[in-house]
Design a protein around this nucleic acid. Structure first.
Lengths: 251, 251
DNA sequence: GCCCATTGTTCCACTGGGTGGAACATCGCG
DNA sequence: CGCGATGTTCCACCCAGTGGAACAATGGGC
């Protein structure tokens, strides 16, 4: 993003915030953005006026208004609304962590997450991202993705998140072939030690993956294979509902 | 927002999108914003470059990146994370619609919503707003709000959403007093015909309301009074968890 | 296929919104 | 009180942003 433009500066400031932050002082914002102090002060102040940032006790926070705008994003909004009842079914069945995700490039973006008091401690977060190859959600999305996405992922570095992460392209490739056949994907501590997972894609009428659903649990207590059918059924339910909606909205 | 500035134009464009839209053409964006065509084309294009808008088949959509930024908003993020397990408890108990909301001015903003296949059809949406006085969530938040908020709400127009909406300040006021005593608020078709609700505030250490939880169901099948204790318990659980977190983050 | 209205894209002389270094104010700690 | 760090304000200058107009593309009706 070009910092000589206003929008570039706006995005530079918004990107300075991470999931670990609660609020940032002007001085910290300046350290992170490198914008000149006077400019930063002014643009941040304008962002507060616009509701994209809030300022409390001198610290800046991403604003509630940004949350509201974010929840208007039509893809995510529709998916959450349609998938929630199915995710609740999966949650009630297992009391484990249920995720809904979509593919963005070579990453999975978590769109929704249902968790109870006792579920596995997963490092996932709605709005957060993880590499496709290291997660069941990601692999389910990747398996049904266009060829060029396969090529990109299989030729790029397969980053290792845990000792169990698949980093050999050949092994990943044969897993993807298997996922296409089985209709579900599994993850065995590939993204997070101690966490296993089963996922199924939500496919549209042309069998392209628009999202995926998963259940994740701790390796000591959760058997992903036992839930393959219900995850697949939930994903199919979401797909059918989306299809029905698409029919309703077409003239 | 001042449309002579870049940020003003950005906000004007972002605000052109509503919950009913799936995508907007450049021509529709121009009709809604009134911005000059060339300027609109350029700024919208820049927003696409920045990830705040997506463009598909010629139509503009609020972008996935906006969703991701929105989910970084620290107040909402923390509340959702902490409240989700408690909301799941309430959902499992009732299979009705469970909401988490916060107060913004004289409105409730829905921060999270849990619904199954069979819950009441409520017109609520995460990120959406409703007047405080017409919803159980809103009344719970209002009852514990600072005096000036009471004054503002009670002196402003109490918009009627249904024939049952409370529009007499005196009646609202005595309800608020009751809510403070009882610890829960009720709604009987005041925001949506056919929908009843019970809500409880999430209070901080100084008894200020930081959020509220509710269960909404259809008037024919849901008895809000029967769930007052569990909603209150869930709200108290959220409050306790938030308090524990606040302790952890303090030096 | 032609015509026309609508939609979408590009251009550039001009200008005013935006700039950021510097001065000043405030705060917190030793 | 002194000092360093943080936060706020100012304004001469200038270049990022502008939008009317020209041009290109699209889609529908005849």
């Amino acid at each position: 993003m070009d910092p000589s433009s206003v929008l570039g500066k706006v995005m530079t400031i918004l990107h300075a915030f991470s999931a670990d932050d609660h609020g940032l002082s002007l001085a910290e914002l300046q350290r992170r953005t490198g914008l000149p102090k006077g400019t930063l002060h002014r643009v941040a102040g304008d962002l507060v006026g616009a509701g994209l940032l809030d300022r409390r006790d001198g610290d800046f926070h991403l604003g509630s208004h940004l949350f509201e705008l974010g929840m208007l994003a039509s893809v995510e909004r529709t998916l959450i609304e349609v998938a929630t009842p199915f995710m609740e079914d999966l949650y009630e069945r297992t009391h484990e962590v249920v995720h809904l995700g979509i593919r963005e490039g070579t990453e999975v973006v978590y769109v929704a997450k249902v968790a109870g008091h006792k579920g596995a401690r997963t490092p996932t977060r709605v709005g957060g991202r993880m590499p496709l190859h290291a997660t069941a959600l990601g692999k389910a999305l990747l398996a049904h993705a266009p060829q060029d996405v396969w090529v990109t992922v299989l030729s790029g570095p397969l980053d290792r998140l845990t000792p169990r992460t698949l980093t050999a392209p050949g092994r990943l490739r044969s897993q993807l072939d298997q996922i296409v056949q089985q209709g579900v994907s599994y993850e065995y501590e590939e993204s997070t030690m101690g966490v296993v997972c089963v996922a199924a894609p939500v496919l549209d009428a042309d069998d392209r993956p628009v999202a995926a659903l998963s259940i994740a649990g701790t390796v000591t207590r959760f058997r992903p294979e036992q839930h393959a059918a219900s995850v697949r059924a939930a994903a199919n339910g979401v797909a059918a509902t989306l299809a029905r909606r698409a029919l309703l909205t077409e003239g």
